[in-house]
């Protein structure tokens, strides 16, 4: 199994403030990693760096065999990021949002209905503008976007937050399916009771650095 993510003394600044102050991290391909830490520990900044949305200001960062100091075009398409807000177009329906994303990354939109159904978005919800969906339903549409796009790297920012029990179970199932299919999953969390059992590796962050790491509860044959 190769290395999907390799960070050495990675530094990222917002203004002059180091949101990442020298992160050392190695994550194998096809694994699930949970990142724990208090608010302001640098968890979300780390996900944004891994997605190529936050500039690398120091150190080395290789993600999916791509140097993040010069990621080049096409890198971000290999990454899927689901944040607190799934980042959908409010006036488009769930179906249209996914079809737009699929066409943008040059993938056929044939899996859109299947992905939405897998995430429980069916029937009239397919044709409902996103602005009329509940917060939980929006998160499900965001998850469906990842399922349809099948990125090589899944970055989930507190995927269990503000969700009902059924959707939390769904998140766990989707993460397991993605990792089994070979994707690498990195998820931040404030809810270790949900995130640690699904992880191969548990990393704790504080003050913009990795302070501890240990094995998680996921067991792969």
């Amino acid at each position: 199994m190769g290395t999907a993510i390799s960070l050495t003394s990675a530094v990222a600044l917002v203004g002059r403030f180091p949101v990442l102050a020298g992160v050392d991290l190695s994550i194998p391909q096809g694994s699930v990693t949970t990142i724990l830490g208090a608010n302001g520990a640098g968890k979300t900044s780390l996900l944004r760096l891994l997605a190529g949305l936050q500039r690398l200001d120091g150190g080395n960062a290789m993600v999916l065999a791509c140097d993040l100091s010069q990621p080049g075009r096409g890198f971000r398409r290999r990454v899927g990021l689901l944040g607190h807000d799934p980042g959908l177009y409010e006036d488009l329906t769930a179906e249209e949002n996914l079809a737009f994303a699929m066409r943008a990354v040059r993938l056929p939109a044939t899996h859109v209905g299947q992905a939405l159904a897998r995430c429980g978005i069916q029937d009239r919800l397919l044709k409902t503008p996103v602005r009329s969906l509940s917060q939980g339903q929006r998160r499900r549409v965001g998850l469906a976007k990842l399922v349809a796009r099948r990125p090589e790297l899944w970055l989930l920012d507190e995927p269990h937050a503000s969700l009902d029990e059924a959707t939390r179970v769904l998140v766990g199932e989707l993460v397991e399916e993605a990792a089994t299919a070979g994707a690498t999953v990195v998820a931040t969390s404030h809810e270790p009771e949900y995130s640690v059992p699904m992880a191969d590796l548990v990393v704790t962050m504080g003050g913009g650095i990795v302070t501890a790491s240990c094995r998680g509860g996921r067991h792969v044959s």
């Binding site: 944004r48 997605a51 190529g52 949305l53 075009r73 096409g74 890198f75 971000r76 398409r77 990454v79 899927g80 990021l81 944040g83 607190h84 807000d85 799934p86 980042g87 959908l88 177009y89 409010e90 006036d91 994303a101 943008a104 990354v105």
Partner: peptide, 18 residues
């Protein structure tokens, strides 16, 4: 405004459109 809020803009950036 059609581009949406920060989260939507970032989601669009992840699509790596030209």
């Amino acid at each position: 405004s059609v581009e949406g809020d920060d989260a939507t803009r970032e989601a669009t950036r992840l699509l790596d459109l030209d």
